[in-house]
Computed example of a mutant assay.
Amino acid sequence: MKKAEVGSITWRDLTVNNAAEVAEFYQSVIGWKTSPVNMGDYEDYAMSTPATEEGVAGVCHAKGPNSSLPAQWLMYVKVENLQESLEQVLALGGKVLTDVKKLSDTSYYAVIKDPAGAVCAIYDE
């Protein structure tokens, strides 16, 4: 798998109260394939393209690690160094909305808000 380039948008998540219903909505409207992702006592959903089955997005329940996230599409942007980027967020008038969280064995992320109020997640690996 090719390593993501710094500055690239690599994933999108939608966090909502009714993830199963919303995943079915996007499956019907866009044609995405839906695959359940076991989260312990519930399932979130990975969405993939119909032809190549490339994973492009997630539809997640607003609970567990996503309980504090807003109900909106959240893009994940790769940065070189998460801590340095978070310092820049604060220095430039933005806000860090979540604690740093583990994304994978080698990757961490945080959700930020820019000075205009737009929200995204940034991560490194």
Rank of each mutant, 00 (worst) to 15 (best):
M1F: 14
K3H: 11
K3S: 14
K3R: 14
A4R: 08
A4K: 11
A4H: 13
A4F: 11
E5L: 10
E5H: 09
G7E: 00
G7T: 06
S8D: 05
T10Y: 03
W11C: 04
D13G: 04
L14T: 06
N18V: 04
N18W: 04
A19I: 04
A20R: 10
E21V: 06
E21N: 11
V22G: 02
A23S: 09
A23M: 03
A23G: 08
E24Q: 14
F25R: 10
Q27A: 12
S28W: 12
W32F: 12
K33W: 10
V37W: 09
M39D: 03
D41C: 00
D44Y: 06
M47C: 10
P50M: 08
P50G: 05
P50N: 05
E53C: 09
G55C: 11
A57H: 01
A57E: 01
V59E: 06
H61Y: 15
G64Y: 07
P65T: 01
S68W: 02
L69W: 12
P70G: 02
W73K: 01
L74Q: 00
V79I: 05
V79H: 01
S85R: 10
S85F: 09
E87A: 13
E87T: 14
G93W: 04
G94T: 02
G94S: 09
V96F: 00
D99Y: 02
D99H: 08
V100M: 08
K101C: 12
K101Q: 15
L103E: 10
S104D: 09
T106S: 14
I112W: 04
I112L: 03
P115L: 00
G117V: 04
A118T: 14
A118K: 13
V119C: 07
I122H: 08
Y123A: 01
D124I: 08
E125L: 13
